[in-house]
Every structure is written in C-alpha cells, then in structure tokens.
Amino acid sequence: MVFRAPRTLSWTGLSRGARLTIDGQAFVPHARALLRAEERAAASVRPGHRALRVDVLGRRLSTAGLLRGFHRAHPEVELDVVTLLRADTAVDAVRDGTIDATFRAVPLPGGPLPDGVEAVPVLDEPLHLCTGPAHKFAAAHAVTPSRLAGHRIWMPGNAQGTEWAAYYDALAAAFGLTIDTIGPDFGVEPLLDAIADSPTPATFVGERTPLVWPVGHDLRRIPLRDPTPVYPHCLLWRTDNPHPALTALRDHLAATRPRLTEGETWTPATPAGAYAVRLRPT
C-alpha cells in the first residue's frame, strides 16, 4: 500500500526548524489511521500473529459446537471460523498454513494425509434416524441399523468424493441399507419439510447436530442401537504450526471429548492398505 501526499502537503520553513502547513496538519491524522489499518490487515493473515483460523465444514454442524465450546472456555483467543466444502481443499489449506486446523472424518477418501499433517479423534458422534410422524419407526425408542434395510434413507447432500458420502456408503454396505442421494440439495429445511409430509423417507443426523423445525412437522429423532453407528470427527493440523492458540484448542478438545459408554459402536472398517493416515492415539 503506497500513500501519496497531496501537493498541498508542504512544510513551512522556520529559523528553528519546519512545520506542516494547515493542509498537511489535516492530512497526517488520516494517513496515520491508514497506516495502522494496513498493519492490522497484514497481521490478520500472518501465521502466529493473526486469529486462530479453523474450518468447521458447516456452521450448523456439531464441530461448530465444539469450537463454540472452546470459545466459551477461552474467550481471550481470537477466532476466524471458515467453512470449506472439500476435504482435499481443507487439508491443503492446513498444509500451506492458510488455516490452522480443520475438523474432518478420518480416514479421508482419496489418499493419505500429507507429511507433517496430523489428526486426533475429538468426537465420535452417534447417529439418529430422523422421521416424520407417520413413518413406521416414528414411535420407536431406538432402532437397530439392520432393521432399516428396505426403507428409503434420503440424503441428497451426500456429494460423491466427500468424506461423509464415503462414510454413509460404508454404513449402507455394512447393514444392507439403501441411501438415496437423488434430487437437488436445497439444504436442511426443505429436506425436513419433505420428511415431515411423507411416511416413506427418513434421513440420518448426528446426535449433536442441532435441528429446528416448525411445530406442525412433529419430526422424530430416534437413536440407532446395537450397534450404534458413530461419525468419527477428528481435528487435523500441521505439526510445525507456530500459532500459540493451537495447543490450547487441542488440549480443550482432548479434555472435553465425550466418552461413549453404552453398547457397541460401529465405524467404517478400514481395509488393509486402503488408507495411510497418521492418527494420534487418545
């Protein structure tokens, strides 16, 4: 950024020195303010000095709730919250230092994590079945995943090549389910509208994913049991990232990680050699 003083900015010579003209005195405070703004702008993108920048994939997902919990515990830490759709984009941003961390499901589709990028589990989120009031399982206290075989599970947001689509593909294969991804993805609200109005489709949502719907929808969230499928949220970061708040974030997530104590759980089995990840044990 280059500042050019107006031609009226000049100095009046005096026997004991020089002083700004009246125009110059009017100009200098504004120039100083612009210089301070330039310094703040540069610091906002300088690793180690800018706010801690974390990708949560979606601001209405449970990982955003994890970050809000960290903010409540550490209000002194400046945060930049970003949402990146693709896992490869997020991992590249972590590797390049554009962001400091990302929440993703590991293993990721498409290959191993880059050298120097590490992952640690932070939340195994149980799945719920979301149905309308006329659905066969609407009154159930819990449902075994295998009982959903033959029922339409509608998830138009499962874009191929994403880690959540890979997870649900593995879930469908493990329990003989049919997950329908056909149709435009208009977002959560239109999906819930369609489920509320029909006895046929249902969808999966995470236990900690907040959903809000009109009272008349009378939607149901039904836990899955025996086993409980859990979505494996992990935090990914670059091991040599110098940001001083990154350690505080990892420590907070480790200390507050929920523990599953009821029954058996299910996560996608990883075939030998399918993925190579550096997953830090907990």
Rank of each mutant, 00 (worst) to 15 (best):
Met1His: 13
Arg4Ser: 13
Ala5Met: 14
Arg7Phe: 12
Ser10Leu: 14
Ser10Gly: 10
Trp11Arg: 15
Thr12Pro: 01
Leu14Glu: 15
Leu14Val: 09
Leu14Asp: 10
Ser15Ile: 13
Arg16Ser: 13
Gly17Glu: 08
Ala18Met: 13
Arg19Asp: 11
Leu20Lys: 10
Thr21Gln: 13
Thr21His: 09
Asp23Ile: 03
Phe27Ser: 10
Pro29Trp: 11
Pro29Ser: 10
His30Gly: 14
Arg32Ala: 12
Ala33Gly: 05
Ala37Val: 14
Glu38His: 13
Ala41Thr: 12
Ala42His: 14
Val45Ala: 11
Val45Cys: 11
Arg46Lys: 15
Arg46Thr: 15
Gly48Asn: 09
Asp55Met: 04
Arg59Asp: 10
Arg60Phe: 03
Arg60Lys: 08
Arg60Leu: 07
Ala64Thr: 04
Gly65Pro: 00
Arg68Ile: 03
Phe70Val: 05
Phe70Ile: 08
Arg72Asp: 01
Arg72Gln: 09
Ala73Cys: 04
Pro75Ser: 03
Asp80Asn: 10
Asp80Thr: 13
Val82Pro: 00
Thr83Arg: 05
Ala87Gly: 11
Asp92Ala: 15
Ala93Asn: 07
Asp96Gly: 11
Ile99Pro: 06
Ile99Gly: 04
Ala101Glu: 05
Ala101Trp: 06
Arg104Pro: 04
Pro107Asp: 07
Gly110Lys: 09
Gly111Pro: 06
Pro112Asn: 05
Pro112Ala: 15
Pro112Lys: 07
Pro114Met: 07
Gly116Glu: 06
Val117Asp: 06
Glu118Pro: 00
Glu118Gln: 14
Leu127Trp: 00
Leu127Asp: 02
Leu129Trp: 04
Thr131Phe: 09
Gly132Tyr: 04
Pro133Ser: 15
Pro133Ala: 08
Lys136Ser: 14
Ala139Met: 12
Leu148Ser: 02
His151Ser: 13
Arg152Ser: 05
Arg152Ile: 10
Pro156Ile: 06
Ala159Thr: 15
Ala159Tyr: 15
Gly161Pro: 00
Thr162Ile: 06
Trp164Gly: 04
Ala172Tyr: 02
Ala172Arg: 04
Phe175Thr: 02
Gly176Ser: 03
Thr178Asn: 12
Ile179Ser: 03
Asp180Gln: 11
Thr181Gly: 08
Pro184His: 04
Gly187Val: 09
Leu191Arg: 03
Leu192Val: 08
Leu192Ala: 05
Leu192Pro: 00
Ala194Ser: 14
Ala196Trp: 03
Ala196Asn: 11
Pro199Ser: 04
Thr200Tyr: 04
Thr200Lys: 04
Pro201His: 05
Gly206Leu: 05
Glu207Arg: 05
Thr209Met: 07
Val212Tyr: 13
Pro214Ile: 09
Val215Lys: 12
Arg220Thr: 11
Arg220His: 14
Leu224Gly: 00
Arg225Ala: 14
Asp226Phe: 03
Pro227Asp: 08
Pro229Cys: 05
Pro232Gln: 02
Leu235Gln: 00
Leu235Ile: 15
Leu236Ala: 03
Asn241Thr: 01
His243Gly: 02
Pro244Tyr: 12
Ala245Leu: 08
Leu249Phe: 11
Arg259Asp: 07
Leu260Ile: 12
Leu260Thr: 06
Leu260Asp: 06
Thr261Pro: 01
Thr261Ile: 10
Glu262Gly: 07
Thr265His: 12
Trp266Ala: 02
Thr267Asp: 01
Pro268Met: 08
Ala269Phe: 07
Pro271Tyr: 00
Gly273Tyr: 12
Gly273His: 11
Gly273Val: 06
Ala276Ser: 13
Ala276Gln: 12
Arg278Phe: 12
Leu279Gly: 01
Thr282Val: 13
